[in-house]
Write a protein that binds this DNA or RNA. Structure first.
Lengths: 155, 155
DNA sequence: ACCTTATTTAGAATAATTCTAAATATTGAC
DNA sequence: GTCAATATTTAGAATTATTCTAAATAAGGT
């Protein structure tokens, strides 16, 4: 099977993480992960499928969904749902938020300073938190064009 | 047409808001808004449809989607997308975050103290922010059951 | 009432995702 | 390495969520 990206450091990590959740390392899972690492533009499952077929022409859509699910439950990939359209997938593991353009629908990573504090959200009794997500909505540079609406800081 | 909830204060507001965006006040839009106000459990469009039919048996699914869209673009309702399943609708206008249960998929409102600071997210040049959303993922009290995983504060 | 325009409606169409059952690949034991 | 047991992949059907379409109806202004 083709090995396009040398994600060597993460490679071991991929296998480890898969095994930790009782799954096997397969060529398809490696390849789908590669595809996500190669272009971190938050592709949809369909886009991942199209890209994945280039290096692995026989991969099927069902497998792409399977692989994405496996990667998500391994914690190597995040699912991004911002509107009624298809779910997007994010392989950026650094601490970051997302920006959703209301006009074109694209998702952008908003990287945080490594020491930036995440908001502390006090939860009612009984809730167990595992992850925090912050999404800013608005218009991306491409779509903002000439008109101005607000400052460049969301609060 | 039936007028089940006396959302009198918001009523004028509904009409105002609709008109401000060039839309008309209709019995269906009022009724769908009523349905959302009556039970703020983040129903899906389908659930809204089912509830709406009780008081307005001839309303159609397409109309429910239309009304929801109208309410969303009026700013009276927020769309909530947390996973690959159907979009949910939230009529809580107070400042709040959302909690998403990874086990049962339900959405919960996490109300904030009125003076709680929202995180300040510095955006790169060119992005225009209009809204900020915070979602905590984990397990809800119902699903958390006996096992314990983390503290009750996400950070 | 009348005209203009927006909205509703049912149903068809599309898009996104999940399911199914058979074929194939992987792992661990020998 | 071969074998059995189990996980994964696959194509395609099925399901679910959402959008579109064109005709009928309702709203607002005159």
């Amino acid at each position: 099977m083709s090995r396009k990206t040398e994600h060597t450091p993460a490679n071991g990590s991929l296998q480890e993480r898969l095994e930790k959740s009782g799954r096997r390392l397969t060529a398809q899972r490696e390849h789908v992960y590669d595809v996500l690492l190669q272009k971190k533009d938050h592709p949809t499952a369909e886009e991942v499928f199209i890209r994945a077929k280039k290096g692995m022409p026989d991969i099927s859509m069902a497998t792409v969904y399977n692989c994405l699910d496996a990667l998500v439950s391994c914690g190597l990939v995040r699912q991004v749902n911002q509107d009624r359209s298809a779910t997007r997938y994010c392989s950026n593991l650094r601490k970051h938020h997302h920006f959703h353009c209301d006009e074109c629908g694209r998702a952008y990573d908003i990287d945080l300073l490594p020491d930036a504090p995440l908001p502390d959200v006090p939860l009612p009794e009984g809730f167990l938190a595992s992850q925090l997500e912050v999404t800013v909505r608005g218009r991306c540079p491409d779509c903002a064009g000439r008109s101005t609406k607000q400052t460049s800081s969301a609060s």
